[in-house]
Design a protein around this nucleic acid. Structure first.
Lengths: 269, 269
DNA sequence: ACCTGAACACCGTTCAAGT
DNA sequence: ACCTGAACACCGTTCAAGT
């Protein structure tokens, strides 16, 4: 049912580890061109064009044809630079990330709060990331720089490397979750493409009409209480901080635990 | 650039609140048919067929044609039951969820642990949910039943309705994040469709080769320490519990806070 | 070596025509 | 009223041909 097109990776590049060639190109390792006309494009140009289209029209506006025409080339010429549309989406997901915020001597907690919020804001600015982002671990230079800065913020807390990575990836997930929530409620979507609901109040009312209070007792009670009609809208920065602090409180507890373990160990010797 | 097809909702149904008609159908409110031949299908049948295809071949195997042929009908007949493919995906996302686990007298913490793990496992069994799930708040009967049970588990903790909902949605996000992590690392994907990386060890090695230790100091240090080569694989249940406990510790702290507030208030009066 | 244009095998969706 | 079949306007990707 449709011929599988997998395995468009591992072309070119003499190197022991096979690596998707898009990833190579994301790191600036364009193949060394010798003979023939100079290439008119590069991956960064193509990616930037695709991102502009996605920002303006949503992901559905991004086709090989539309990207190609934006950079002034036939659709088929893109395949000189990219193995497939999948590859393009991968490159877009990395390319949409600006440099991470600088630590500037903050506490780990302050920095990670800033970091997570900034991450969330990026996703809101490029809402199409929500449809692209989830499936692969980051391999591009921009995303990995974000990861690096989160790990760096946790230096000196006594957490080991594995714990730091897990904290960072949990925070990444939180940023995505919060962005998805805001987006779906109708927060910051210029094209309104996927907002099934136009406002929080609507959501509550729709639910209230749908629910059988016997089958859905707790949810019905919540809806009847009017949670969805908060003074300044349902999803706001306060909500973001609320959930984030649940997480950071947990991290703080862990750090405290590690610190007291260390102290006990040093007292023993 | 492609004619916009929005606003295929709000057809039929005499009701004050306009509601996507798929949502109506998900709740069993099929339009009352009087004249003409009886319909051969219903939304549940179509949705189940689509889910089976997605489970077997991934989301890319799901086309109007493939779904229609599985239920023995021409592709165009599906439009009697569904407004668009988007609608089908919405119905699939709800239909893939089995009934939530029963509380059975557990503590809120035990139940939410079970709940979140079960949620995560569902996403792993239907990995295509990761590409479908994120954008709209749940409106289907199955998903809302999950939400109801999470809220119910938090009854008696002193949290208000808004707080309970935020806790539940944070846990949902965590389940998705964890599933995405496991999936991308190559965990449980029969079709291996989106696994850019075939194993955790590979990921670490690939990264190690890519990274400039000056530009990515903390991440390089983590990779050099060999975090990615844990004894029983990188992502396991222990990791799931680790991150989840960060969250639940935060929730527990909040519950404690609410409880002491209440006590202080009652002492005053 | 890069880029084009034609071609292929698909898509989702519409609409008039049959029952 | 349901379902079909033809048709439309797209897709992503290939490949031979031009430079």
């Amino acid at each position: 049912m449709q011929n599988p097109r997998r395995e468009s990776r591992r072309d070119s590049m003499d190197q022991e580890r096979p690596l998707p060639s898009v990833v190579e190109r994301m790191w600036g390792r364009e193949p060394v061109t010798r003979r023939g006309p100079r290439p008119r494009l590069d991956l960064a140009t193509i990616t930037a064009a695709a991102i502009e289209i996605a920002d303006a029209e949503g992901l559905s506006g991004v086709s090989m044809a539309s990207v190609a025409s934006r950079v002034g080339v036939a659709a088929t010429a893109l395949y000189r630079y990219i193995g497939s549309k999948e590859d393009l989406l991968t490159a877009m997901a990395d390319g949409a990330a600006p440099p991470p915020p600088e630590p500037a001597g903050m506490s780990w907690r302050d920095y990670l709060t800033l970091w997570t919020r900034a991450h969330r804001d990026i996703v809101l600015e490029h809402a199409w990331l929500l449809s692209v982002d989830r499936l692969a671990p980051p391999l591009g230079p921009r995303r990995l720089l974000w990861l690096d800065r989160a790990l760096a913020a946790l230096d000196g807390t006594g957490l080991d490397h594995g714990e730091k990575i897990k904290v960072a990836s949990t925070l990444t997930g939180y940023a995505l979750t919060d962005a998805a929530l805001i987006h779906s409620i109708g927060g910051g979507d210029p094209t309104m493409e996927n907002a099934a609901i136009t406002g929080a109040a609507d959501y509550g009312e729709v639910l209230a009409g749908l629910l059988d209070p016997v089958a859905y007792p707790a949810l019905s009670a919540a809806m009847r209480s009017g949670v969805m009609h908060g003074a300044e809208g349902w999803v706001d920065d306060e909500d973001f901080v609320f959930g984030l602090n649940l997480l950071l409180d947990g991290v703080e507890a862990l750090i405290g635990q590690r610190a007291s373990e260390k102290q006990r160990a040093s007292e023993k010797s």
